[in-house]
Amino acid sequence: MILRGKCHKFGNDVNTDYIISGKYKFKTLDMNELARHVMEDLDPDFYNKITPGDFIVAGSNFGCGSSREQAPLAIKYAKIGAVIAKSFARIFYRNAINTGLPVIECDTDKINAGDELEVDLSKGIIRNLTTGEDIPIKPLPEVMIKILNDGGLIEHFKKYGTFNF
């Protein structure tokens, strides 16, 4: 799986309320509506800046906070290609994989806002097309790549009628 897009950079400890504010989570279950408000507490114009396939890049502990699946789903519905961070809150990480949103762990210090990136999940590398630098990523287990390729755990289950690991 190869992904390409532009970096939108955030800091450490981006919690699920920053990803999608609670004031929206309780008003609607329409994921397309929630997607329009992704990251707006940190960047009010975020949704208007992104194009399909772009990346959210952050520091450590991305997705801390509640265990609701709305945060990774809202990111996915905003057509973000993946979230790249130094580390993730464990529940957010699993929810993201289960919903089909790639989450990638690596050192993000050499990735800057606006950098064009190419992520090769199979090879375990991010190529920063802006700087020419290669950044190794923490490899995803094959089972997670299979789930992501199928579009998430539910789609994987529909495809195989069971868990095909």
Rank of each mutant, 00 (worst) to 15 (best):
E116M: 14
K146V: 04
R127S: 15
G132A: 10
D134T: 14
D109W: 08
G124F: 14
E142Y: 10
E133H: 10
N149T: 03
L129Q: 15
D109R: 07
I125W: 06
I135L: 04
G124I: 15
D109Y: 07
P141W: 03
C106L: 04
I111G: 09
D107C: 02
I111Q: 03
I126Q: 05
G124M: 12
L129C: 14
V119Q: 09
K123G: 05
N112Q: 07
V119K: 04
L117V: 08
I147N: 01
G114K: 04
L101I: 01
D134P: 10
N149P: 00
D150I: 01
I104P: 02
P136E: 15
D107S: 02
L117G: 12
T130C: 14
I145F: 01
V143I: 12
V143Y: 07
R127V: 15
R127T: 15
L117K: 02
G114E: 13
P141M: 04
G114F: 11
T131P: 11
N112C: 07
E142M: 11
E133T: 13
G132V: 11
E133C: 10
D120N: 15
K123D: 07
I145W: 03
C106E: 08
T131A: 07
E116C: 09
L117S: 11
E105G: 05
K138Y: 14
E116A: 13
G151T: 04
P139N: 03
D134F: 08
E105A: 09
V103F: 13
N128L: 04
G151V: 02
E105K: 03
D107Y: 01
I111D: 13
D107L: 03
T130A: 14
G151Q: 00
E142N: 13
L117C: 06
T130W: 12
D120A: 10
D134G: 12
N128P: 09
D134V: 11
I147M: 02
E105Y: 04
P136S: 12
C106D: 12
I104F: 05
G152L: 01
I126F: 02
D107I: 02
V143H: 08
D150C: 06
I147A: 03
G151S: 05
N112Y: 12
G152F: 01
L153M: 08
N112K: 09
E116R: 11
P141I: 09
I145N: 07
D107E: 08
I145S: 10
I135G: 06
L129D: 11
P141V: 09
T108W: 04
E133V: 12
E133Q: 14
A113L: 09
I137S: 07
G114M: 07
G132E: 12
D120K: 13
L148N: 05
D150K: 05
M144D: 13
I135C: 12
P141H: 07
P102I: 01
I111L: 11
G132T: 05
P139L: 01
L148H: 00
I147Y: 01
L117P: 10
G151K: 04
